[in-house]
């Protein structure tokens, strides 16, 4: 597994990172119960828009893929598909314990335990579930990371593509398509 080492950004990237840090558009992949914490974060109490954050409709438009909670293997395939449709640079945020270590579903045969085996997670927000304060706090962290050019998960994914693919295949297996509704 390669590590992304280089951190000497070009001027274009530095400027770009400044914009990207201050305008975080998210694709919420509301897989689990964590999604319930997003509306309060968005509305007047916490108002994430003040940081330039906001939800977006499609992965094409989004910068951050937010996985809110446990992820069943069935959904994983879709999550990966969505991730690959996002435009570089893109960031993944794992939300809640379930993405971190499986949480209360740690021994389920239907969910994955560790998201970063399959996708390059830039930031985890621990907790079951993390309150809006925690979310705001950790996004502050993410903003700093982007600004400094430390959120390099997308590069990592590119460079270690085989490793990620192998993990994904390991978990999902190859699929034979029968027709539009049956794999």
């Amino acid at each position: 597994m390669h590590e992304v080492q280089k951190n000497d950004r070009s001027l274009w990237e530095v400027v770009g990172d400044y914009f990207r840090a201050n305008s975080i558009w998210m694709k919420w992949y509301c897989t689990g119960c964590g999604a319930i914490e997003m509306p309060p974060t968005m509305t007047s109490r916490f108002d994430m828009e003040q940081l330039g954050m906001g939800p977006m409709a499609t992965p094409r438009q989004a910068d951050v893929l937010l996985i809110t909670g446990y992820l069943s293997t069935k959904t994983l395939r879709r999550v990966i598909y969505s991730y690959e449709q996002m435009q570089d640079p893109k960031y993944v945020v794992g939300f809640g314990s379930c993405t971190l270590n499986g949480g209360i579903y740690y021994d389920s045969y239907a969910t994955i335990n560790q998201l970063d085996k399959y996708l390059p997670v830039d930031l985890y927000i621990a907790g079951c579930m993390p309150r809006p304060e925690a979310i705001m706090n950790s996004f502050g962290e993410l903003i700093e990371m982007i600004k400094k050019g430390e959120a390099k998960g997308w590069k990592h994914y590119k460079e270690n593509h085989e490793w990620y693919k192998a993990n994904q295949m390991d978990s999902l297996g190859e699929v034979i398509i029968h027709d539009e509704f049956h794999e």
Partner: peptide, 15 residues
């Protein structure tokens, strides 16, 4: 075919 489909896999262009 590489379009946003709410992450659904669709294999038939006609659909």
């Amino acid at each position: 075919m590489d379009t946003y489909t709410s992450a659904e896999f669709i294999h038939t262009p006609e659909l």
